[in-house]
């Protein structure tokens, strides 16, 4: 359950920037290749944010798409799973997006 320690990092990173201000919203971007489950983050966030200025904040997760570029056919395609395989059959692909694990912004009162 690495999402728990990652959620603790999130809360610390936000508090570091917002001080004691009441946080009403937290916006994340989590890609399908990040190894982090958005649902698990939502679950952990409620627990970890309790009794902090983030308590009750709305957690919005932008579940970005995984995209890769094939070095063989030069096509760009959507990654459906962790297997980095181009529809043309080549495994020589470069991940363009999908590994994001970021807090993009926070909303404070």
């Amino acid at each position: 359950m690495h999402e728990l320690s990652i959620t603790q990092s999130l809360v610390e990173a936000v508090l570091d920037r917002t001080g004691g201000r009441s946080v009403t919203g937290v916006n994340l971007r989590i890609g399908p290749l990040s190894g982090v489950l958005p649902d698990a983050m939502r679950f952990c966030f409620e627990v970890v944010s309790a009794d902090t200025p983030l308590a009750g904040a709305t957690l919005t997760i932008d579940e970005s798409e995984g995209r890769a570029r094939c070095r063989s056919c030069r096509d760009e395609f959507v990654l459906e799973d962790m297997f980095l395989l181009c529809p043309c059959g080549s495994a020589d692909v470069e991940v363009v997006s999908g590994r994001e694990l970021q807090v993009t912004s926070v909303e404070v009162a």
Partner: peptide
Amino acid sequence: DAGHSPAAEGRTLISLEENLLAK
């Protein structure tokens, strides 16, 4: 903010763009 809806009335949106595994 790029890709986000505006902050609600009386609230401020702070851009962070920070990797959660940065530390």
